[in-house]
Write a protein that binds this DNA or RNA. Structure first.
Length: 435
RNA sequence: GGGGAGAUACCAAAGCGGCCAACUGGGGCGGACUGUAACUCCGCUGUCUUUCGACUUCGUAGGUUCGAAUCCUGCUCUCCCCA
């Protein structure tokens, strides 16, 4: 192998736990490895980005990555890291989610490529759906003891202590089913490695164990590697912004917000994230870190991180639009800049900003600010709130600060129908004038 | 089953007959500063009203009083101690 995958992942801080012999195996020959994705939603959010990137690293290092969508395991529910029993998804919802994830996944891995190590996409529902309970119990269940399964953290936590709320038989079987996936892929694709987040270590080792025991008489090899769960320096949960999850699909999280999410990374986290979430090489990153330390206010790390990840997940064109939007919203833009935009660009910039419609009549004689902010639009909670904001000198119309006696008229219209209101720097509202 | 403590705004927590729309802290929002940051400083944080002021709020339903978050009674809920 020309490239040492483990070494590459190690300097990036992406190796949490690794089974002995894994590195040797990866150096010896092109190896097939897989990661499972949970179809709990119809789209992937940035929490799934790390496993996706792991698969891409595999491919780049000359190994064959398999992305497994958990159509079957999703029907059971992974107890790892959950303190309560989960609700089951119905089949229809699950099929919808599997399709959505498959769709997102193809943006990062080319499953139609013809190369020797081209990525493969599988769904464990395909081989689990016709597996009868009795067959499963005899072929798989017999190989693993309950004692072994009970020793897993994900199970122990639920059985003991105050945090535990018990566990159904359904969730207890989860690790066996995921373990069987590994065996199935070993058998059909000679897959010898499973990767995942560190919370998956227990499930993965059940898999490696199962691969060994299912192959009586033959020396079967299966390896495991996990990456650390992504954390933030301030202890809050990674991957959430005020609006909730940050998704990989532009219609769920606009490219602008996606870009902003990365741009707002703290210095400390940026150093860590740029290694994990970009494919820049060590020299480039080290140089960036040095440059950033010299001039932290330039935020070279955050900018590069945001650019790279946005291009990887979306595209160069999307990134350009996001930076244009960012400059308008945060740069020293003026009413003239706003009015210079064509309608489409304007709408892209203000994508996701709260909107309200008002009749054209109401601005004919000038619309007072309280009406624009609260009485007619509900941007702010109450008239008093609007009055307060005005008193605090916090309100802008089309990027220009206004006083409480300002009247909105037709001359404020952008593209003949929009007015941009702001409270403070970050709270934007879009007023749309209806004919 | 017995005994005790409590329920106040987004959260925590004062107030214990009029000076209470309710001390204070946190959070949130805004302003100054700044790197679209951190830190720091300042302001705001029930509704309506330009101000004055009016109205609705202190678990819930009643009552006492000129006047109640504050006193009394019923109810609901929470916590603690003993069985």
């Amino acid at each position: 192998m020309s490239k040492n995958l483990v070494e590459e992942l190690r300097w990036r801080g992406m190796v949490h736990d690794i089974m002995p012999g894994t590195e040797e195996q990866l150096l010896k020959e092109s190896t097939t490895g897989y990661i499972g994705f949970d179809p709990t939603s119809d789209s992937l959010h940035i929490g799934s980005l790390v496993p996706i990137i792991l698969l891409v690293h595999m491919e780049r290092a000359g190994h064959r990555p398999i992305a497994l969508v958990g159509g079957a395991t999703g029907m059971i529910g992974d107890p790892s890291g959950k303190s309560d029993e989960r609700n089951l998804l119905n089949e229809e919802q699950l099929a919808h989610n599997v399709a959505g994830i498959r769709n997102t996944m193809t943006r990062f891995l080319n499953f139609d490529a013809s190369a020797e190590n081209a990525p493969i996409l599988v769904n464990n529902y395909d081989w689990m759906k016709n597996f009868s309970f009795i067959d499963f119990a005899r072929e798989v269940g017999k190989r693993i003891s309950v004692n072994y399964m009970m020793a897993k953290d994900s199970v122990k936590k639920r059985l003991t202590g105050e945090a535990g709320s018990g566990m159904s038989f359904t969730e207890f079987t989860y690790q066996l089913i995921q373990g069987y996936d590994f065996y199935h892929l070993y058998k059909t694709h000679n897959c010898m490695l499973q990767m995942g987040g560190s919370d998956q270590w227990g499930n993965i080792t059940t898999g490696t164990e199962l691969v060994r025991r299912m192959n009586e008489g033959v020396e079967a090899k299966a390896y495991a590697m996990t990456c650390p769960l992504i954390t933030k320096a301030d202890g809050s949960k990674f991957g959430k912004s005020e609006g909730g999850n940050v998704w990989l699909d532009a219609d769920k999280t606009s490219v602008y917000k996606f870009y902003q999410f990365w741009l707002n990374t703290t210095d400390e986290d940026a150093e860590k994230y740029i290694k994990i979430f970009t494919f820049l090489d060590k020299e480039t990153i080290d140089a960036l870190i040095v440059a950033h330390a010299e001039a932290p206010h330039m935020r070279l790390l955050q900018k590069k991180l945001a650019e790279e990840v946005t291009i990887f997940v979306h595209s160069k064109e999307s990134l350009d639009k996001a930076t244009v939007a960012s400059n308008i919203l945060f740069g020293k833009s003026t009413a003239a800049d706003l009015k210079g935009l064509d309608e489409q660009t304007f709408l892209d910039v203000f994508d996701g900003v709260p909107q309200a419609e008002i009749a054209k009549d109401s601005i004919a004689n000038g619309l007072d600010m309280i009406g624009a902010l609260a009485a007619k639009t509900n941007f702010l909670n109450s008239n008093g709130d609007a009055r307060r904001a005005l008193k605090e000198n916090a309100v802008s119309v089309n990027k220009e600060k206004v006083k409480d006696d300002y009247l909105i008229t037709e001359k404020d219209l952008i593209a003949d129908k929009y007015i941009v209101l702001q409270r403070g720097k970050k709270n934007y509202f879009l007023l749309k004038v209806q004919e």
